[in-house]
Simulated scan of single mutants.
Amino acid sequence: MTFTNAISWFEIPATDLNRATKFYETIFDTQLIPMDMPEIKMRMFALTDMMSGVGGAVVDSGGSHKPSATDGPLIYLNGSPDLQIVLDRVEAAGGKVLMPKTEITPEYGYMALFLDTEGNRIGLHSSPQ
């Protein structure tokens, strides 16, 4: 089996969905799309192609998903073309920069880490410039 992307979907836990939605909409300068189900409320990141792209959402699952700065997987959101633009909005939106823009290698681009308003450690990645 060959994967187009190693990840097909991600969920970022939130305890205050309105606060988390405002944070991500502010730092990415976008609108998240509401999608609520009986047991979980989601605010999805927009996708141009649901079948081939990687999708994800900020979620309030009533406590079964818990924000964490240290436990669990670390996801990297797309900060292209320059993750510094997104990173510059983090603190004003209520988050905290944990690692500034850092070159991985000239071929692999840049990374950074931040703490969101819910207490999640999230990565950013952008391609080489």
Rank of each mutant, 00 (worst) to 15 (best):
A92V: 07
V97N: 05
L77W: 01
M99R: 12
L98G: 00
N78Y: 01
V58R: 02
M44D: 09
L87D: 03
M50K: 14
D82V: 02
K66V: 11
G56T: 04
I40M: 06
T102D: 08
K96Y: 14
S64P: 05
M99F: 11
G56M: 01
A69V: 11
M51F: 12
T48R: 14
P81C: 02
D49V: 06
P100E: 11
A69P: 15
A57G: 07
K41P: 03
V54G: 10
S64V: 15
K66L: 04
M42K: 13
Q84P: 14
T102V: 07
A69M: 12
P73C: 07
L98P: 03
G55S: 09
L74R: 02
V90I: 14
M51I: 12
K96C: 12
S68V: 03
L74Q: 02
A57K: 04
P73M: 07
V59M: 14
S64Y: 15
A46E: 15
V54I: 11
G56E: 09
M51P: 10
G55T: 10
E103G: 04
G63I: 12
V59H: 03
F45I: 04
T70S: 15
I75G: 04
D82S: 06
G72N: 00
L87Y: 04
P73K: 05
L83N: 08
G95N: 02
G63S: 10
I85L: 12
V59D: 09
I85H: 11
G62V: 03
D60V: 03
L47H: 11
T48Q: 11
D88S: 15
T70R: 11
G79S: 06
D49P: 15
H65F: 12
V97S: 10
D60E: 07
Q84C: 09
Q84I: 07
E91C: 06
I85A: 10
G95I: 07
V58Y: 01
K66S: 11
T102N: 07
G95H: 03
T48W: 08
T48E: 15
I40W: 00
V54Q: 06
Y76W: 04
S61V: 04
P73L: 13
M99L: 15
N78D: 10
L83D: 03
I40R: 00
E103M: 10
L74M: 05
L47W: 06
D49A: 08
P67M: 10
T70M: 07
E91Q: 00
E103Q: 09
G94T: 08
P100W: 06
I40A: 02
H65I: 00
Y76M: 02
S80V: 01
T102C: 07
V54H: 10
N78T: 08
L87R: 00
P81N: 01
S80P: 00
G53Q: 09
G63K: 13
D88P: 05
M42A: 15
P100I: 06
A92I: 03
A93K: 04
V90E: 14
A69H: 12
L87V: 02
L77M: 03
K66H: 09
G79M: 02
P81A: 09
G53A: 11
D71K: 10
K96R: 13
L98D: 08
V97G: 01
D60I: 01
R43N: 00
V90G: 13
D60A: 00
F45G: 01
R89T: 03
K101N: 05
L74W: 03
V97I: 13
T70D: 14
G94L: 09
I40V: 08
A57T: 14
E91H: 01
A93Y: 02
S80W: 00
S52P: 07
S80F: 00
